[in-house]
Simulated scan of single mutants.
Amino acid sequence: MRYFKLVVFVLSIMVATSCKENKKETEEIIETEVEEVVEGTKIEKTISVTMSPKSDSNVTGTVVFTEIDGMVTMEGTFSGLTEGVHAIHLHEKADCSSPDGTSSGGHWNPTAQPHGAWGATTGFHKGDIGNMTADAEGNATISLTTDEWCIGCGDDTKDIMGKAVIVHQGEDDLTSQPSGAAGARVSCAGIIE
């Protein structure tokens, strides 16, 4: 009988120790999951648009917008351009239906500012991205990160959804009103889901 009590006592200690270790492992697992949730609270949205040729050009490309914690990064790659400097803007409407791209309206300017260089203290349109340079093969890239935009946030002064990306034939002089005298629209993509 003593032997039986001793076995029961030893088993009780083993079960208690085992439960304590399992509890510790469970607590560690829960803690890890909470950390992942906290780290996962970063708001990330991405939208990619494909550029279509306009005005009898061959200009194509892809523009990817990514928003993380209130900052939107635009990464664009283009081909079929003539060598040199080309303007790129966001326009009012995600409508690329017309052959010359004019169905996209004018520059996106929700705060009624004068046209200008991005970030200028004298003012600029929220769509005044600026210029990019195409190489001898007609390829160009552009990158911009800003807190002036958002993706689908519903703020009329920041939301790029429903706008269009337009690449122009020429260079934006960053001063002519209202559009920088950049010439024909040679590629267009609506920013839509």
Rank of each mutant, 00 (worst) to 15 (best):
S12G: 05
E44V: 15
V59W: 11
V7C: 00
I30D: 00
N109L: 07
T32W: 08
L81C: 03
M71C: 05
T133L: 05
T60P: 03
G138W: 10
P110Q: 09
H86Y: 06
S104C: 11
T32K: 12
T73Q: 11
I88C: 03
T73C: 08
E75Y: 01
V59M: 10
T62N: 07
V8G: 02
V8I: 14
G61N: 11
E92R: 02
V59K: 12
E75A: 05
F9G: 03
K45Y: 11
A120K: 02
V34Q: 03
G70I: 15
V38N: 03
D69N: 15
D95L: 07
E67C: 04
V37Q: 12
G84S: 13
D69L: 14
H89F: 05
G106C: 07
M74N: 02
D100K: 05
V15A: 09
E92P: 00
H125E: 00
E137W: 01
H89K: 05
V34Y: 01
M14C: 06
F78C: 02
I13L: 14
G119N: 06
L11D: 01
T66D: 13
K93A: 10
T121E: 15
E137C: 00
S12C: 05
G76C: 04
G106T: 06
H107C: 14
T73W: 08
